[in-house]
């Protein structure tokens, strides 16, 4: 109830971003499916994006990043899309070569 009545601040966004980030990291750490790992990366990037947006939002603070925050977020989104395309291509190639998508099997270069 407190939350419902309180005014939202940057910190609120940061908490959500932190949750997204940690979830993404854990996703990367616990998924053996390459696409699962990729999904984890997307979550991490989104957590970061949320922080940028929050710091750039003029609803939340006086002293904001301004539009720089949004611009950086845009860049991140675009780069994430590119990264997803490449990573998926890698995953497909990996699948074609190993008939599996288990990242634990991707240890050809193991020391």
């Amino acid at each position: 109830m407190y939350l419902l009545l309180a005014q939202i601040t940057v910190a609120h966004y940061l908490v959500v971003g932190a949750v997204l980030f940690v979830t993404g990291v854990l996703c990367m750490a616990t998924k053996r499916n390459a696409i699962g790992v990729l999904i984890g990366i997307e979550l991490v990037l989104n957590g970061a994006n949320l922080n940028f947006i929050a710091f750039g939002s003029k609803y939340l603070r006086h002293d904001t990043l301004g539009f720089d925050g949004q611009l950086i977020a845009l860049f991140v989104i675009v780069l994430a899309a590119a990264e997803a395309a490449v990573a998926l291509a890698i995953a497909l190639n990996f699948y074609n070569n190993h008939t599996t998508i288990d990242v634990d099997k991707a240890e050809d270069l193991k020391g």
Partner: peptide
């Protein structure tokens, strides 16, 4: 949706 709320509808 959070982005919309934060005043970044384009993003």
């Amino acid at each position: 949706g959070l982005f919309f709320l934060a005043g970044a509808p384009f993003v």
